[in-house]
């Protein structure tokens, strides 16, 4: 029984993350918020460290910290009219640095490598539960705000002009993005998750006629990437997270060849 759980739980986790990340990623790619997602993926670290130090669920601290990073970048950019990419990357580096500093400062015993790159083979039911909560958050966002998100993606100025709560929608997206990233952390780590958010979205994005169809297509690609990567990693005795990250790049190569 233990041996089955040893195999099945990581596989289940890989499949769930393989669906969840590309669905959220489709939203981020079409809203041009991948850079913000990358910032959030790094900004979760200080929150994780503080949560562990004070005995809270690391996921909660990670989500809060991710949202704070995103809000800080947005505020700095809006108030100073500085270059958005430069501001985001600076905040990203700052939060990552703070996270790394907090580990010795708070005297924590954290496996930084597992946080950054994931360790599928050690996942437990709690990790699966976190992914299910993130799935629920994504479903709630899409179920209640789908049309508004479409409007915001295709015409941000028009969406504001039509009276949509643009800042609220972006904040909700940041919060759900942070929840997805933190939940996927155990599988692929906060660094590699960006590959699983983006790569599965791209093959079909130019062919579909709706955001919904793009999400479904990306979920299938993500499922194959994540599940395939995990099953390939076992016989090769390689860590699944990095292998899935490499598979994401391999997926893009034929696409680049087709467009030239």
């Amino acid at each position: 029984m233990d041996e089955i759980v040893f195999w099945l739980l990581p596989l289940l986790m890989a499949l769930l993350v393989g669906i969840l990340c590309p669905v959220m990623g489709t939203l981020l790619v079409t809203q041009r918020r991948v850079l913000q997602a990358n910032l959030i993926s790094h900004a979760v670290l200080p929150g994780l460290a503080v949560s562990v130090a004070f005995g809270f669920d690391p996921a909660v601290g990670g989500v809060i910290s991710g949202i704070l990073g995103s809000l800080l970048a947005e505020r700095l950019q809006r108030n100073s009219k500085l270059n958005e990419e430069a501001v985001i990357n600076t905040v990203l580096a700052g939060f990552l640095g703070l996270g790394v500093l907090l580990i010795p400062l708070l005297n924590l015993r954290l496996d930084l490598e597992a946080l950054l790159f994931g360790d599928l083979l050690t996942v437990g039911w709690l990790d699966v539960g976190r992914v299910l909560v993130a799935c629920l958050a994504v479903a709630l966002l899409l179920g209640t705000r789908y049309r508004q998100l479409v409007y915001l993606g295709v015409d941000p100025e028009g969406a504001a002009s039509a009276g949509l709560p643009v800042r609220g929608l972006r904040l909700a997206m940041s919060a759900v993005t942070a929840a997805v990233i933190v939940s996927a952390m155990a599988a692929v780590g906060v660094i590699l998750v960006i590959g699983l958010l983006c790569a599965p979205v791209l093959p079909g994005l130019r062919r579909v006629r709706s955001l919904r169809a793009a999400m479904v297509q990306a979920a299938f690609v993500g499922l194959a990437l994540s599940g395939g990567g995990f099953l390939l990693a076992l016989p090769l005795n390689l860590p699944p997270g990095p292998l899935i990250g490499v598979a994401c790049v391999v997926l893009l190569c034929p696409l680049a060849g087709r467009s030239t």
Partner: peptide
């Protein structure tokens, strides 16, 4: 120029 014409929408 303000519209994302590549957005997947009919």
């Amino acid at each position: 120029s303000r519209i994302d014409w590549s957005f997947p929408i009919s």
